[in-house]
Amino acid sequence: MSLTVVIAVAALLFGIGLYGVLSQTNAVMIVMGVELMLGAAMLNVVGFLRYAWPEAVSGSFFVLVVMTLMALEAAVGFALITSVFRNRRTAEVDDLTELQG
């Protein structure tokens, strides 16, 4: 259990999250993929905080800000998805092509 292992796990999680974001067509599933990627980034920060600079406790605050932004992104994103679904009866991003020209 060293920093390399932690970062390798975070990189794997980030890759899985990226696959989720790219392969899904439903907006809810895309938001889930983004959550996975942000979680991987948080794991990275926490790992570096523990192994490299434990005297800089302020790194924890950085993680908390990221966590707040994750919650905000979920709330506003789901509000948008709900609104789109109510008006268009779909949550598939492929069906929303008004701005395609």
């Binding site: 259990m1 890759g15 790219l22 523990r50």
Partner: peptide
């Protein structure tokens, strides 16, 4: 998507292996 995510992971793995993180040891600071 699998190809894209796989390429990103390989790139990250190369970046991890290329750094001097091993100097931190298993216990850390």
């Amino acid at each position: 998507s699998i190809v894209f995510a796989g390429v990103l992971f390989v790139e990250l793995a190369i970046a991890i292996l290329g750094t001097g993180l091993k100097a931190l040891g298993t216990e850390g600071a």
